[in-house]
Amino acid sequence: MVKSKKVLFWLVAMLGMFFLGVVSQSSGLIDDFFYYWEDIVYLSVQHMQLSAISGSAAIVLAVPLGIWLSRPACKRFAEPMMQVLNIGTTVPTLAILALSMSFLGIGATPAVFALCIATLLPIVRNTYVGLLAVPDHLKEAANGMGMTPGQILLRVEIPNALYVIFAGIRTALTINVGTVPLAFLIGGGGLGELIFTGIDLDEMPMLLAGAIPTSLLAVLVDISVGILAFFIVPKGVNPLRMNT
C-alpha cells in the first residue's frame, strides 16, 4: 500500500519533470539558462563560501553558548537570555544586514557577520533545550559513578542531546543558504547577484539561474547535515536508526 503510493509519487514527479523539460526546451529557457553557466559556477562558489564561513562561525559560537547556558550555574539568567535571543530572531535578516552594513561598511565581511547572527539562534536554542531535556536521573547516575562534570557533559549529556542539536544545525544552515542571496544587497556577492539583477531587468532566465542553484544548494545542505546526523548521533538515541 505505502510502497505503491511511493511509486506513484515518483512516477508523477518524473512525468512532471519531463513535461517541464519539454516546455522549457521549446521556449528556449534552457539555452538561456546555460548562457549564464559561467556566472552560476563562479557565484555558487562565492555563495558556498559565504554560507560555509558564516555557518561554521555560527556553530562554533552557538554550541558552546548553548552548553554554557544549560549549566546549573547559569540557571538564573538562562531563560531571560533565551527570551532575548528569541526576540532577536523576529528581527528580519534584511534589517540585520542593514545594521551590520552601517557598522562594518559594505562587502563580504558585514554579510558574513549578519548571516552568522541570523543563523545563531536555532543552534543555541536547540543545544540549550536538548541538554536540559537529558533526564536528571541520567546525570545523577553519572555523578554517582564518579564522573567529573566534564566527563558527564561529554559522555552523557552531549551524546543524548546530539540529535536535537543536529536538528538545530540543520535548520540553521538551510535557512543560512537560503538567506545568502540577500548578501548581494550589501555587496557581499553570491547567487543573489543573478536573482536581484534578474528581477531588476525583468529577465526571467537570469533570475532562475540564481534561484534554482540556490534552492539546490539548500536542499543539498539539508540532506548532507541529515546524513551526518545519521552517522554521528549514537545509534542508541538516534530516531533515524531506531529500527535498524
Binding site: 547516575a141 554517582g144 559513578m145 564518579g146 543524548n160 542508541g236 538515541v237
Partner: peptide, 19 residues
C-alpha cells in the same frame, strides 16, 4: 574517587541510552 569505589544503583535504573 569515593564514588568510584561505591557501586550505585539508582531508583530509575539510569542506563545511558547512548551507550
Amino acid at each position: 574517587s569515593l564514588r568510584r569505589n561505591i557501586g550505585y544503583v539508582i531508583q530509575q535504573i539510569g542506563l545511558f541510552p547512548n551507550m
